[in-house]
Design a protein around this nucleic acid. Structure first.
Lengths: 169, 169
DNA sequence: ATGGGCATGTAAATCGTTACATGATTCT
DNA sequence: AGAATCATGTAACGATTTACATGCCCAT
């Protein structure tokens, strides 16, 4: 997935800095991507060079100026074109699952640790999502969070079953 | 995720060709990665150069020889080391979700099409997984398939709810 | 004073996809 | 005849991560 459209779409809602975009990615769009600054800033620069976004430097007291980006007409039409195309298939890498798959080469204690840590991480994520969800007014944002919540819950249930199977084995 | 360990792990179970590995990825390990030949073959060559795997050319009648790879002691110990480390976080790209997030810039018809196509794809995947599951003897393989089934079901439920919300809006 | 949040970025290295190229066999 | 399966690979390109570099403010 090109992060180009991620940025364009976010800027279509409101002007933002690169830092803001990164936060949105971490907060709302975790289930979409995990883009870091190393991806985001260069893409922003490219978008600027292509005329799809504009940049305005805002002076701040006591800290360096920040660069606020906003989408242009060019950017809008590019976004529109992309939205109409069918989405690319999901691309997912789950190292955790791979280790589980190879678990027979592992002592039981290690296997249990793997599952426990996964459970803890998933639970933490679920808690965070649920807390976040209540604060949202925007329905689309709720859709995305609900998606993540559903998947987390499904994974928790699966983990529970798995742990039982392993305990009785 | 380095596909290095994926290959090592598969070869730890039985010797295979690059082609076989690719099939395993498509069949059992869809939820883990989607690596293609362009990743797999070069990684295999690297592993061979590093002495982590061995290669044996098997002549075949009526078709070109195939190259069967098997893991070495070096490879085993590298795999063992990797297995003990905590897994990297999931790395996820879901363009579909991103388009949904930006759906307010889209006419309702497009939105519905997006959801319908997703539903169809997910259902097809679910059917395939369920059929596959019944044929499995290996419990670890069932774990992975069960994981995928759980997530697919959760997504189907979420889609149903979403579609209802949109119809009444 | 230490760590976290705000805020920007770059460079190197690696990772991965896509599209191409080849060729025989078997199934429909 | 045409498609699928078996079987190998490469090259070009694009995407992404990681680690680094900088610097101020605020709270503990």
């Amino acid at each position: 997935m090109s992060h180009r459209y991620l940025i364009l779409g976010l800027l279509a809602e409101q002007p933002m800095t690169g830092y803001d975009i990164r936060k949105h990615v971490q907060d709302m769009l975790r289930a979409v991507t995990n883009a870091s600054y190393g991806t985001l800033y260069p893409t922003l620069h490219k978008l600027l060079a292509d005329g799809a976004v504009q940049m305005q430097e805002i002076e701040q007291e006591g800290r360096p100026a920040k660069k606020v980006y906003r989408i242009t007409e060019v950017g809008h039409s590019e976004l529109g074109g992309w939205l109409k195309e069918p989405p690319a298939a999901d691309n997912i890498k789950r190292e955790f699952l791979l280790k589980l798959y190879f678990a027979k080469n592992l002592p039981q204690a290690e296997l249990q640790r793997l599952l426990t840590e996964r459970r803890d991480a998933t639970q933490a994520r679920l808690d965070h999502l649920c807390a976040e969800r209540d604060a949202l007014q925007d329905s689309r944002q709720r859709w995305i969070v609900d998606y993540s919540v559903s998947l987390c819950r499904a994974e928790m249930d699966w983990l529970t079953q798995l742990e039982q199977q392993i305990d009785f084995a």
